[in-house]
Amino acid sequence: MTDSVVETDMVIIGAGPVGLFAVFEAGLLGLRCHLVDNLDKIGGQCAELYPDKPIYDIPAVPRCTGQQLIDNLLEQIRPFEPVFHLREQAERLERRPGGGWRVETSAGTVFESPVVVIAAGAGSFVPRRLPLPGAETFEGRSLFYAVRRSEAFRDHRVVVAGGGDSALDWVLALQPLARSIALVHRRDEFRAAPDSVERMRRLVAEGRMRLVIGQITALEGVEGQLTGLRVKLQDGREERLDCDRLLAFYGLKMELGPLADWGLELDRGLVKVDTEAFETSLPGVFAIGDICTYPGKLKLILSGFHEAALMCQKAFRYCRPEERLVFRYTTSSTDLQKKLGVI
């Protein structure tokens, strides 16, 4: 928790490609930005879903991967020194009595700014929850989707579900602490780093942990405390595992999250904007990229870049009402080149 308030020109919710490019366009106009993202890394879907997949439709970039696009954008916006607040979800948006907006995050960070830009793509990435009857009664008590403190697993009968890096990393980290530990995965192949898989297999061979190939079908326990779970094995048989701490890693999903309740005008889960400034129904709150909708909207990264540029023109008027904005090109303006740090 922070007690101090971060004052800035623009709070950008979402650190995907469109949020990043908004930093550039804002920076050219002399506006400072803070970005909030629930992921643990910069780049949104490009970094989380398809870092290694090719993208062919960025103007003048014939081919790049999702991660390369993000790396290039980060290089492009470096002169403007954006501040990132990762692993934080924007929870509340409130109008300030004196004008402008107040944004509060899940980590307690508070921002005050004349402009808020929602560049949240398809929403926040949140862990996929176990879709089994009664699962919610165990969540936070004996069923977890992340580890806050390893000590909470000491001397427990731990089951980890999943086949990616998170599952394997936590199996290896918790194995020395746990009373017993088992990894449950639907097939005997793993997406996780080969080195972790090999270490896991060695522990299994030494009898220090179990590997169960199958899918969890039911949870057992009372009043939030798991006692065991049922796993359907590959051959169709069912096995019961003792378990009082279950860690489930089934990847992340995207959901609109708290911003659905901010009083924005929505259309089928998207934020309605005008096409002059990409402003929402709340003055000074803009929405750009995949999360916004207007007649003719296409969910393309290049559309989001365009939206960012136009949005900044109006955002400037909220941030610097006393100043006149003159339109200039980076090619010819020494003022812009100074901001970019190239002269």
């Binding site: 639907r186 097939r187 192949e189």
Partner: peptide, 10 residues
């Protein structure tokens, strides 16, 4: 096949 790891009730 790998992405199906992120599905449930496979």
């Amino acid at each position: 096949t790998m992405m199906l790891d992120e599905a449930f009730q496979v």
